[in-house]
Amino acid sequence: MGLKRQKLAKKIINFYKYNFSFREPFQILVDGTFCQLALKNKIQIKEQMPKYLMGEVKLCTTSCALKELEILGGDLYGAKIILQKFQLRSCPHFKKPVPASQCLLSMLGESNPHNYFVATQDRSLTEGLKRIPGVPLLYIISNTIVLDKVCQTSLDHVRAVQLGELVSPAQQQSITSLKKEQGIVQKDGERRGRKRKRKQSNPNPLSCLKKKKKSGPTPPKKTEEGKKRKRVRNKKPSTAGGDMPAPAVTNA
């Protein structure tokens, strides 16, 4: 595995980790087209996928994808055997199977809440998945597994979240219905006007004022009790015959 290709894959995985909360083990939805090309190029999916994604993975599929290979039969029998070894995820088409591409799109919904990777060689499915934010795509090219670069939908989603411009699907539907009532719905062919650049606002004058220096803590005043009391020395009275001076001697 090329060092450059692995570094690029690590960068893309980190993008999905930080912005869409992807965590190990990575769940990878695999369809029959991916298994067929892996079999043709002698790629061991279970061995190479964890090495390429640098983490633990869970390979899974749906009953619709298996049913599609079973109906087609013929040369796809080997791909069916490989796909049967993966974990089966329940889909809403158990009674009435649908094409694998339609089934995988329904599994991801509008926001890929279960954080699935998708491994496929179906171009129509890939185009549909690129309209959903937060969907990492895996495909095989030149006998190697490749993680597709981040699509523009995911980049726009992250940018909208960072700017606080993202709205919920329910709010988006109400906005669209109001636009239709007012007759201001923009056609697909029309170009959108350029966004106006925000003018730089002047700084708040209050924030420019110099902050007053805080005066240091005032030393505590000494209380009278803390002052040292002067010691009063009491003089002892003189005793008789003790320290009296001698009388002066006079000549008779």
Rank of each mutant, 00 (worst) to 15 (best):
K235W: 08
F20A: 04
L59V: 11
K85S: 10
P92N: 06
P217H: 11
E70Y: 08
I140Q: 03
A38R: 02
R196K: 14
N234I: 14
K96V: 05
G78I: 09
G78V: 07
P92G: 08
L59P: 08
P99E: 10
V30W: 03
K236A: 15
A100R: 01
N112M: 07
S177W: 11
L105S: 05
R231V: 14
L69R: 03
T223E: 03
Q172M: 10
K80W: 14
A170V: 15
P25M: 12
P220T: 15
F26Y: 15
L66D: 00
N115M: 03
V146Y: 04
G242H: 09
P220C: 09
G242R: 07
F94L: 08
C103W: 02
L137M: 08
D243E: 08
L8K: 14
P169V: 12
R194Y: 02
Q173K: 15
K179W: 05
Q182N: 04
T61G: 03
G128K: 12
Q48I: 07
S124Q: 13
P247F: 12
R159N: 12
L66W: 00
S142T: 02
K227H: 10
K197A: 13
A65M: 00
Q102K: 09
T153M: 09
K222S: 07
E68I: 02
P219F: 15
A170R: 15
G189R: 06
K230D: 09
E24D: 06
Y52D: 03
N14P: 00
Q171M: 11
N204V: 07
Q162D: 06
L138A: 06
K210I: 07
D122N: 12
K210Y: 05
P205E: 07
K211G: 05
V98W: 02
G183Y: 06
T153E: 06
N234Y: 13
E225S: 13
F15C: 04
E225H: 11
P247N: 10
K51G: 11
A160Q: 08
K58C: 08
G109F: 13
L59T: 08
L155Q: 04
Q48T: 06
K58G: 02
S177T: 14
H114C: 10
C91K: 00
L206M: 13
G183H: 05
L66P: 00
V161W: 07
L37S: 00
R131Q: 11
I82E: 06
L147A: 05
T61V: 04
Q173Y: 14
F22V: 01
G242D: 10
P217E: 14
P245F: 13
T61I: 04
V185L: 03
K7E: 13
Q121N: 00
V185E: 04
K235D: 03
G32P: 03
K230Y: 09
S177K: 14
T218P: 15
P247T: 12
K236L: 15
Q186S: 11
V150N: 01
G109R: 11
A170Q: 15
R194G: 04
A240I: 15
L53S: 06
L37D: 00
F117S: 01
Y52F: 13
